[in-house]
């Protein structure tokens, strides 16, 4: 009898322990999404025209007939939104909405968006670059791909003119002028509008409608995969005719906006996999 009572008491005790844990912490972990959620994958595929981009080895030709190789291609994909058919949108929470796509790191090209309310989506939009709010935040908020120590960012931060580089493309070209580091072209596009003094704002929003395909996010079904192609040739072609021979080095300069306008048009939906 005594033994049974002891066991009962222990069981009640354990129950109390767990009840304590759950009750006491209910307010700590509010469910971020009321209702069921699912996932969606964005995959970035950097291409040159019709071929897959190969770093360092392949020669390509831009619209100006200039031969070039690409050695680096990095860009920030941030502030992702998913639009629904009724025009409303799901905005990925700020702290989960900063990604750095690097051609040299295949894993960085696949972005898994989680905790998305289930439903049908018709468009994805995102910023290329780091918005002005994040660009001016306390260093405690600059973690992961935003860590200015470059552990992961690999030189996507200007230390002398505080701010992130939104888009970076580097390469070599026989048309480039000779510099100490060889015949190279360097396009480092940053600038977010300035802290207190207004500067150029090179943030660009990319909106890509899914067209005829309905992207259905479900709780347990197949995770839809949206593949976005980014065509390097478009960086040279657009409102600005970018020629390596003329402008091999564009960083903090008024020309940077032209490059941003060009690369804003380099993205398109390639495939949507829903099964």
């Amino acid at each position: 009898m005594r033994k049974i009572r002891k066991i009962t008491l222990t069981a009640v005790g354990w129950l109390g322990l767990f009840t304590g844990i759950f009750w006491s912490c209910h307010h700590d972990n509010p469910d971020p999404q009321p209702g069921p959620t699912g996932s969606l994958q964005l995959a970035f595929d950097n291409v040159v025209g019709n071929t897959d981009l190969q770093l360092n080895t392949e020669n390509y030709t831009n619209a100006g007939g200039e031969l070039f190789k690409v050695t680096t291609l990095n860009y920030y994909v941030t502030n992702i939104r998913l639009k629904r058919a009724d025009g409303s949108a799901y905005v990925i929470p700020q702290d989960s909405s900063y990604f750095l796509v690097k051609e040299a790191e295949p894993a960085s090209q696949r972005i898994m968006l989680k905790n998305i309310p289930v439903g049908n989506y018709t468009e994805v939009s995102y910023l290329i670059g780091v918005d002005s709010l994040r660009n001016t935040m306390d260093v405690s908020k600059r973690t992961g791909v935003l860590d200015p120590s470059g552990g992961m960012t690999g030189g996507m931060y200007w230390d002398w003119n505080s701010g992130y580089i939104h888009f970076k493309m580097e390469g070599t070209s026989p048309q480039a002028p000779v510099t100490a580091s060889g015949k190279v072209f360097l396009y480092h596009i940053g600038l977010f509008g300035g802290y207190r003094t207004k500067t150029i704002n090179n943030l660009r929003t990319i909106a890509l409608p899914f067209g005829a395909t309905t992207v259905r996010v479900t709780e347990n079904g197949v995770v839809p995969k949206v593949t976005i192609q980014a065509d390097v040739l478009k960086v040279f072609e657009g409102s600005m005719k970018l020629r390596i021979a003329v402008n091999a080095d564009i960083m903090v300069s008024s020309l940077s906006s032209g490059v941003a306008d060009n690369y804003a048009r380099m993205f398109q939906i390639a495939t949507i996999k829903t099964d």
Binding site: G13, W14, G16, L17, F18, G20, I21, W23, S24, C25
Partner: peptide, 25 residues
């Protein structure tokens, strides 16, 4: 004593559950 142990365990549950809560409870 049993009641005491039980109360202690429940209390412990609260404490463990709230460790991330900078102890405001």
């Amino acid at each position: 004593q049993h009641v005491g142990i039980l109360a202690a365990i429940v209390f412990y549950g609260f404490a463990v559950g709230c460790q991330n809560d900078s102890g405001k409870d």
